[in-house]
Design a protein around this nucleic acid. Structure first.
Lengths: 212, 212
DNA sequence: TCGATAACAATATGGTCATACGGTTTTACC
DNA sequence: GGTAAAACCGTATGACCATATTGTTATCGA
């Protein structure tokens, strides 16, 4: 019939280009022309895959969100595979949102830029809301699982606990972004991690029966 | 010599107009022309008070930051005047950052919009950093004061505690913005406030000697 | 009262950008 | 191998906007 191309791959390439531009020069510097150049294609081709710029940005936003989420899921899966305590796995999973290295710092910047625009772009706000809800749900699930293996008190409601953990994680992420020194080992000893651990300790108060 | 006008008041009017535009249509919708219209003046006059648009936005950013800060200071002063426990005063002060009503919600939106742009605008990042540092300093001071009156354990370091409280506050603010129901009294009972209280309770573990 | 100067207004200018559009090239299928 | 459809490109268009510029009005001080 006709020439073919990997639609999803092309769209992914464009999303990556958008994210690269944002991380380097901010969301305002993202133009269709610049994106095309960064992705190594023509303006017309970008238009071929995205009818409007907004559609393109929306896809890029979902792309980064999914990417971060993927890393979190990896951590969780690895934790499950190694049968590690839920509290530890959760600590590592949540740490993925904290800009502790260049990769996460870049993703943080990109996410924040999108979040800023999402304030007045309903479609983007939707992505943000769905992403946040999914995270809350997963944390709540982890807390729930913690009950079954004895790490969490039976009478603890997973939902408020999840909100609290999500809030602390986002807050710590912001603090670390502003002052990366908070993540360093001196002099207070990985303050960011210790705050997250302290928070987790208020919820995961028991030992997993499996190892008790 | 010449005609006179209240320079600061004019600049304030423009800042207010900018904030109104942001809260209604987002930062991207802010143009010099629209700002002038919203402020009830001509484009030329806006230019008279701000040489560039960036300068105008920067001033608006510092304006909202100072405004929020002003409300916090009011709370603190009132707390001091009524000799209330530091933990309670701090709870109220931090709650000023949480979008619990329309006013704070609007301010939150505006602040976030600016924060988004600050990611790639050094001058704005500076305002954000200074504002955050000032808040951290004040919380640390409150914790320190708490020691002197017996609300806080003597061996507790105010600095990590301040980071933790600031992080939780920012995080809760974000959660409440996404889901305002978290602030409602049902069914979990002002979840946002209770989380902040729980956090404060881990730091302010004693009673003020004055009332003990 | 007069003139200097700041306050204020209206429009001109030049650049940027999203999108539209008309074209060329490739390739899957018959 | 012909052809239709898609993948792909380059440029044109029209809108918008920040800023420059030029002009007008009011008022302070002498």
């Amino acid at each position: 019939m006709s020439r073919t191309a990997d639609h999803d791959e092309r769209r992914r390439q464009i999303a990556v280009a958008v994210c690269a531009l944002i991380s380097e020069h901010g969301l305002d510097a993202v133009t269709v022309a610049r994106t095309a150049a960064a992705a190594g294609m023509s303006v017309g081709l970008v238009q071929h895959y995205f009818r409007t710029k907004d559609e393109m940005l929306l896809h890029a936003f979902t792309h980064v969100s999914a990417h971060i989420r993927g890393r979190v899921d990896e951590r969780i899966q690895a934790g499950i595979d190694h049968r590690r305590p839920i509290a530890r796995v959760l600590a590592e999973a949540l740490a993925e949102f904290v800009p502790l290295d260049e990769t996460r710092r870049t993703e943080f910047r990109v996410s924040r830029a999108f979040a800023g625009r999402a304030l007045d772009a309903p479609a983007m706000a939707d992505v943000d809301a769905k992403t946040a809800r999914a995270l809350l749900g997963d944390i709540a699930q982890a807390v729930h699982n913690g009950k079954e293996c004895g790490e969490v008190a039976e009478n603890l409601d997973p939902w408020p606990a999840a909100v609290r953990l999500a809030a602390v994680t986002e807050g710590i992420a912001m603090q670390v972004y502003r002052d990366p020194a908070l993540a360093l080992a001196v002099p207070t000893g990985q303050l960011a991690a210790s705050i997250l651990d302290a928070e987790l300790a208020t919820i995961f108060t028991g030992q997993c029966r499996q190892y008790a």
